[in-house]
């Protein structure tokens, strides 16, 4: 939407024509991408050092992929992110339907704020709260599996899945649903045949975003992981403390690759409008 307004007003005013726009843009992009480019470059380094170039090699990718701890951590990451994406998207879809497909309810803003709570509360606060809470649950039930991580990740992923789905629902033409109802479709048929297909791209986009957010989390995971549940980011944190080896660059690059693919998918899906 923001795009459309700037384009329409392009003739009279464009931020790109302000003096100093180009240099500022270049500096911003440099700050954003130069460190990442360096890291990716050095992941192909042949030498033992993280910052001295010793020729091109895929050596550290081999080292990283052959390391059992790395593959274990990667599998844990994928399982947690997969479940968290599915659960949070389900909840987010229902929440989005509940908050858009009905008349105005008093306290709507409060409801939005409550759903988006993980965006406002500092991560470390959530982490400590969950640590204490889950410790009590663990003591009571004796269950120490991946369920805690999945639950926690699902919770903080909800707003990320919720926002694109709600945006889509708000932008959708209500007359289609009204027409379906006029043609004697039951509420379920309307939802199943009209609303859901139109909403699908946003649901996928929300799930991708949730997956990526879960994949990248460090703080909450570090606090609530049970024995043997290191994810890729927490595993990397542990590596940094001692001597940094170039395989960390390789793992980061792989992680970056997965994130990039998912984010591209997100943008492609969310662009596909009507």
């Amino acid at each position: 939407m923001a795009e459309r307004t700037t384009r329409r007003g392009g003739k009279s005013f464009s931020v790109t024509r302000l003096p100093g726009f180009a240099p500022i843009a270049v500096v911003v992009f440099l700050v954003l991408y130069a460190p990442i480019a360096t890291l990716v470059g050095y992941s192909f380094n042949a030498s033992e050092s993280v910052s001295q170039w010793g020729g091109f090699s895929l050596h550290w990718y081999g080292v990283a992929l052959q390391n059992g701890e790395v593959t274990d951590a990667a599998i844990t990451s994928m399982i947690v992110a997969g479940f968290a994406a599915v659960i949070s998207t389900l909840v987010a879809t229902m929440a989005a339907l509940g908050t858009t497909r009905r008349g105005h309810v008093p306290g709507q803003t409060v409801i939005y704020a409550m759903i988006n709570q993980p965006l406002m509360v500092p991560e470390i606060v959530t982490a400590v709260a969950l640590l204490i809470f889950f410790a009590m649950v663990k003591q009571a039930t004796g269950y120490t599996g991946l369920g805690y991580l999945i639950l926690a990740h699902s919770a903080f992923c909800i707003p990320f899945a919720y926002l694109p789905i709600r945006a889509r629902l708000e932008g959708m033409d209500l007359s289609l649903e009204t027409a379906a109802a006029d043609l004697y479709a039951s509420p379920w048929q309307t939802f199943r045949r009209v609303t859901l297909p139109l909403l699908m791209p946003a649901i996928f986009a929300g799930a991708m975003l949730a997956f990526v957010i879960s994949l990248d989390d460090v703080v909450i995971t570090e606090f609530i992981k049970s024995p043997g549940q290191d994810t890729l980011p927490t595993f990397m944190m542990g590596q940094l403390r001692r001597s940094m080896k170039p395989d960390v660059n390789a793992i980061s690059t792989l992680l970056l690759g997965v994130t990039l693919v998912m984010l591209s998918a997100f943008f492609l899906l969310s662009r596909k409008r009507d």
């Binding site: 701890e69 570090e222 024995p227 043997g228 549940q229 290191d230 595993f235 944190m237 542990g238």
Partner: peptide, 11 residues
């Protein structure tokens, strides 16, 4: 043996 990492004495 299952090893789990920590990154500081405080954590």
């Amino acid at each position: 043996v299952t090893i789990t990492d920590f990154d500081s004495n405080d954590t």
